[in-house]
């Protein structure tokens, strides 16, 4: 369970990127954070995986206050998560395989197992035939799928995705969401920042509406 209590975030005075956001996301939820550009979706996701710290407020994940985790132990939290960044954050001088495998290399899995899981992940995003290519040779949409494969390869308990379908055509976007739904069906909590109304309408189970850093509405579908 992810609980956010009165989260405030200010990058620059006097504007608040996030203003008093409190929300609860249950284990196994498939939820969207939506809102117009600049509403604070990315900031909120970055706070949840502790890339940045909130100016005020507390965040509990399964009862643990993640803001109190010392820096050198933050890797434990991150290993529970799979993250799809809006800017993909790929290592451009390494192959697609190496980019996806990094999430598993850090855990010390046997090479054979790493190869198997990386191949499966890439097959899920329909990119297994480009395993040995370099990201710079891939299209924008393909790079995005590499980022998705990396996020799902370690079977995360929490999957965070920031605009994961932003550069994909509708069919592929639908397929990617189906993959996320499969991961969700296996027990993972999925949180997606998106403004794609069509997808949200189709897949959204719990939806938080964000505007100028504030939650202005919440919808839970049965």
């Amino acid at each position: 369970m992810i609980e956010l209590y009165h989260i405030w975030k200010q990058y620059q005075k006097p504007h608040w990127a996030i203003a008093d956001v409190s929300l609860e996301i249950n284990t196994g939820d498939f939820c969207f954070i939506t809102g117009p550009s600049g509403s604070g979706k990315t900031t909120l996701l970055r706070i949840i995986f502790r890339e940045i710290l909130p100016t005020e407020g507390q965040i509990l994940i399964d009862g643990v206050n993640i803001l109190k985790i010392p820096d050198h132990k933050i890797y434990k939290l991150r290993r529970l998560m799979g993250i799809v960044f809006q800017d993909f954050r790929l290592m451009f001088h390494q192959s697609v395989f190496a980019n996806v495998a990094i999430s598993l290399q850090i855990t010390g899995l046997p090479d054979k197992e790493i190869r198997r899981r990386v191949f499966n992940s890439l097959r899920q995003v329909n990119l297994h035939h480009k395993m040995w290519e370099y990201p710079s040779r891939l299209s924008y949409g393909e790079q995005q799928r590499v980022a998705i494969a990396r996020a799902i390869v370690n079977h995360p308990k929490i999957l965070l995705a920031d605009e994961p379908t932003g550069n994909l055509d509708p069919e592929l976007a639908y397929e990617i969401m189906t993959i996320f739904k499969e991961i969700n069906d296996q027990g993972a909590t999925v949180i997606i920042g998106s403004h794609d109304r069509e997808l949200i309408r189709h897949f959204g189970h719990k939806i938080f509406f964000l505007q100028t850093g504030k939650i202005i509405g919440q919808e839970v579908k049965p």
Binding site: E51, H72, I74, M81, F85, R89, S103, I106
Partner: peptide, 16 residues
């Protein structure tokens, strides 16, 4: 630094 950042964000330890 981009690579270091990615490794940190996917859960690599500082030693790694």
């Amino acid at each position: 630094k981009n690579e270091i950042e990615i490794q940190r964000l996917v859960g690599a330890t500082n030693t790694f």
